[in-house]
Design a protein around this nucleic acid. Structure first.
Lengths: 188, 188
DNA sequence: CGAAGTTGCAACACCAATGTAGCGACTTTG
DNA sequence: CAAAGTCGCTACATTGGTGTTGCAACTTCG
């Protein structure tokens, strides 16, 4: 719609979004000043790029959602064996360090389009898992997706705390989700 | 330590804490005004009872932790069969509608004592589950507890959305946690 | 009943965060 | 190289939340 940003602007915007992601994850009420500091940028520059705090938030959510979507696509959920795709997807999410919960973004937002796409893709992934017999055929897909993200979220926290490898944590999540705690953790 | 509160004061304090719990669950950055409104009380009264916002927070956390602890104790984790206790505990937590995740309160706080007790009790519960062979013997207890609360949290959200019975949701959580999605949901 | 304590209300001071504006210096782009 | 655009910085206006005080009306409790 608008013409592309100049190179330096684009760097700045990226720096701000990344900083905001980090800072707001730690404290959702953090000030724009804190975000600007983390981004190595003057506070006024943040205001130049994003009219409101709200505008920044929207852009941030949009950005995170897009990153999530590309994680999904990169895991080749349509072609790879379901369990492999699930593992790839988990590792990707964990690397993202995102503390956002897609499942929680239920509210009708400006982001409906992306959210709907992501939800559909997630649902499809679990549908494939069900079809392949990896999970029970009568699994409640809505619950499956929510449980999946809940576990992923814990895995991200654990990564921050222990510094485990994304792949290890992905295996843990997958194992817990599919087989429960009854079975010992086994690699994909 | 101090002499007991007068009857009306006690009512007020309870009203404020309950209101704060509701309001802050929806928006952690809510103002004291919003909390006062929800409690049906003047804002100045909130300040009279709690010197700071911080003091209110502390009292709130303390209160929530105590409620959690009594949920645990009510589930008779030492005497009841482990799976039954787990189910009881889950239903109790869901009823509490607590959006606080104990696992997340890692920071060294004024509440260490209660937090430590709760953590120990949770750990003990899962240890019993392991000893009874309900979950794998080599289960990482820390992970088990975190996964458990993550699923509980989702169950609470689901309750808000669908209005399911606490017992149904508890069964779902227990089943998912122990048996994973591979097996169909089965009653305790 | 009466003293002690509590509440609502109005008024006020204060501060941190937000948002705006202008200017000189620097960077990108054609 | 030059025009257009961007950034850092300083200064300022505004606002919403926080915390305080005083007083009249009401509640509790001995």
């Amino acid at each position: 719609m608008t013409r592309p940003l100049r190179a330096d602007s684009e760097r700045t915007v990226r720096a701000i979004l990344d900083a905001a992601n980090r800072v707001l994850a730690a404290d959702p009420g953090a000030s724009l000043q804190q975000i600007a500091d983390e981004a190595g940028v003057a506070r006024t520059t943040v205001h130049r790029r994003f009219a409101n705090r709200e505008a920044l938030m929207e852009a941030l959510v949009q950005d995170m959602l897009e990153q999530m979507e590309s994680v999904i696509d990169d895991s080749r959920p349509e072609t790879a064996p379901p369990l492999v795709a699930l593992h790839e997807m988990s590792a990707g999410y964990i690397r993202l360090k995102s503390r956002w919960r897609v499942g929680a973004v239920t509210e009708a937002d400006v982001h409906q389009d992306v959210v709907e796409r992501i939800k559909a893709k997630n649902r499809a992934m679990f549908q494939r898992l069900a079809d392949a017999g990896v999970i029970a055929a009568d699994t409640d897909l809505e619950w499956a997706v929510r449980a999946y993200f809940a576990l992923l979220h814990e895995a991200v926290e654990r990564r921050a705390a222990t510094g485990s490898e994304p792949d290890t944590l992905a295996a843990l999540v997958t194992s817990t989700l599919v087989g429960g705690l009854r079975e010992p953790v086994s690699p994909a």
